[in-house]
Design a protein around this nucleic acid. Structure first.
Ligand SMILES: [Mn+2]
Ligand SMILES: [Mn+2]
Ligand SMILES: [Zn+2]
Ligand SMILES: [Zn+2]
Lengths: 142, 142
DNA sequence: TATTAAATAAAAATAATTATCATTTAGGGG
DNA sequence: CCCCTAAATGATAATTATTTTTATTTAATA
């Protein structure tokens, strides 16, 4: 696993504690946090960092393909250090956003995309519904 | 085709010129407009309508299943009078958002959804890429 | 037609994001 | 290692999309 500083350098970015912190935070979570959540998570270790820097950092990262932005219909965008297109599930009860790796799906999409008069660059599939945990909890209380 | 006033009445909504105008506008377009666009489109015929009313109307409609909200990663939400889950293409060059009806895809998603520990309520597929028109124009200029 | 609860318009408030700008800092050259 | 400078940061203001508030108007129904 490449060191974060090295990755930033390769992208032509100056290596700053703030950028390292944001990128590492995203590498170490599957939560798909938004800017505010990232900011809060880093506050204890980086008490001087500002929210504006988080936003600007995420914007740079996005341009350079270090993160992807994800909007699942909330007020704010979420961010993901996994930049390859991949599907997500969104629980409409607890709000959890999870990755969904299904090679099968990807291949099918690719095939179908070929049949369209449309050059597909990225496909975003979001499944909205009730996650297993919430469904089980619902059953207990009924 | 049912009259708009009748549809609103059946949903338990008071029938107002503003609501009729918004719903008809959405029924007669495939553009997936946002609130601002709807407001501007209705301005000539409904010069006194306010943007807040458009927002509130869209919110009611959404709750009652008359429209669906769609976020393709822009600053604002788009709205669609086609409430059944269906895929969209988004041209990253001209910004056009189009419907994509592929029964094949829907069925495949359904089957895959069954295999997950997740109760799928709605699936949103967005294909980002270059539309046919833009691609042809790009080829001409090269 | 009179009543009234609900809807509207206008304006203020809020939330997310972006821009501005003075200060600080990373990183290359000496 | 220290200096220099362009770039990054933090603080704050501005912007944009959306929601809330409230006084006024209106649709529905008796
Ligand atoms: Mn993900
Ligand atoms: Mn549509
Ligand atoms: Zn859940
Ligand atoms: Zn296009």
């Amino acid at each position: 696993m490449k060191a974060t500083a090295q990755i930033l350098k390769e992208k032509g970015l100056k290596v700053t504690p703030q950028r390292i912190a944001v990128y590492n935070m995203l590498l170490n979570t599957t939560e798909h946090p938004n800017a505010e959540t990232i900011y809060k998570a880093l506050e204890p270790t980086n008490p001087t960092m500002s929210l504006a820097t988080v936003y600007k950092t995420l914007d740079y990262f996005k341009q350079l393909g270090l993160v992807q932005e994800l909007n699942v219909g909330e007020g704010s965008s979420r961010y993901d250090a996994v930049v390859k297109c991949h599907p997500h599930t969104v629980c409409i009860q607890c709000g959890k956003v999870r990755d969904l790796y299904l090679e099968e799906l990807t291949e099918i999409h690719k095939k179908i995309a070929e049949e369209l008069d449309f050059e597909v660059r990225c496909e975003q599939l979001i499944l909205y519904g009730i996650c297993g945990k919430c469904r089980r909890e619902n059953n207990e209380n009924s």
